[in-house]
Amino acid sequence: MTKLIKIEEMNIDALELTRLLSAPAEALRQGGTVAFPTETVYGLGANALSDVAVAKIYEAKGRPSDNPLIVHISKVSELNELVLEIKPYALELMSAFWPGPITFIFRKNPKVPSKVTGGLDTVAVRMPDHPIALKLIELSGVPVAAPSANLSGKPSPTKAKHVIEDLMGKVDFIIDGPDAKVGLESTVLDVTGDMPMILRPGKITPEMIENIVGGCQLDPAISAEDLAGLAPRAPGMKYKHYAPEAEVEVVVGEASKIILTFESAVANAVDLNYKLGIMGFEEDLLVLEKFLETKYKADVLKRHIFLCTHGSIKHVEEFARLLFQNLRRCDEVHCDKILIRGVSEHGIGYAIMNRLKKASGGKVIRI
Rank of each mutant, 00 (worst) to 15 (best):
D129G: 11
D190H: 12
R200P: 06
Y89W: 01
R233Y: 03
I212H: 12
I86N: 01
G311V: 02
E245T: 07
I222G: 12
N11V: 01
V316S: 04
E317K: 15
A27F: 05
K56P: 09
E249I: 10
A35K: 09
G215V: 08
L260R: 12
T122V: 02
P155I: 00
N354H: 13
N109H: 15
D51N: 15
R303H: 04
I86C: 07
L184Q: 01
V123T: 12
E85D: 13
A180D: 10
V213M: 08
P101W: 06
E283D: 15
E16N: 11
Q217G: 13
N211R: 15
G31N: 09
A231R: 07
N67P: 05
D271C: 02
P244K: 08
S264M: 04
I175A: 10
V116A: 13
I174P: 07
E293R: 13
I102M: 11
M1T: 15
V123R: 08
E332N: 14
P131L: 06
L49I: 09
I137A: 06
G361M: 06
P143M: 00
F306I: 07
R366A: 04
I305F: 02
N150Y: 09
T40V: 01
A149V: 00
L339E: 09
G177C: 03
M197W: 01
L82W: 05
T103W: 01
D172F: 00
C330F: 12
A180E: 00
T18N: 09
A224N: 12
Y239F: 14
I258E: 10
T309M: 02
D172Y: 03
S223Y: 06
D172I: 01
A14D: 05
I313P: 01
L322Y: 07
L44S: 09
Y42C: 11
G45Q: 05
K337H: 14
M195Q: 15
E16Y: 07
G362I: 01
S186T: 03
G253K: 11
L69N: 11
A298T: 10
L307Q: 12
S22L: 08
V213I: 13
Y239S: 14
L21G: 13
A145Q: 04
A35H: 10
E207K: 15
I175M: 00
E138W: 07
D179F: 02
S50L: 05
V142P: 07
V188N: 13
P101S: 08
E207N: 14
I7E: 02
D284W: 02
M10P: 15
C216W: 10
P37A: 04
G177Q: 11
G141K: 11
K115P: 01
D172G: 12
V248T: 14
I5V: 15
L134Y: 08
N273D: 12
E92A: 13
P110M: 10
D271I: 05
K295D: 01
Y350C: 03
L339P: 10
F36I: 07
T192N: 10
H310P: 02
H241T: 11
R303A: 13
G141E: 03
D299Y: 10
E293V: 06
P235Q: 06
R366V: 07
K302E: 14
I365Y: 04
M168Q: 14
V163H: 11
A298P: 00
M127C: 12
A145E: 05
K6G: 03
A224P: 00
R19G: 03
F319L: 01
P244I: 00
E59C: 00
S264N: 13
P101H: 11
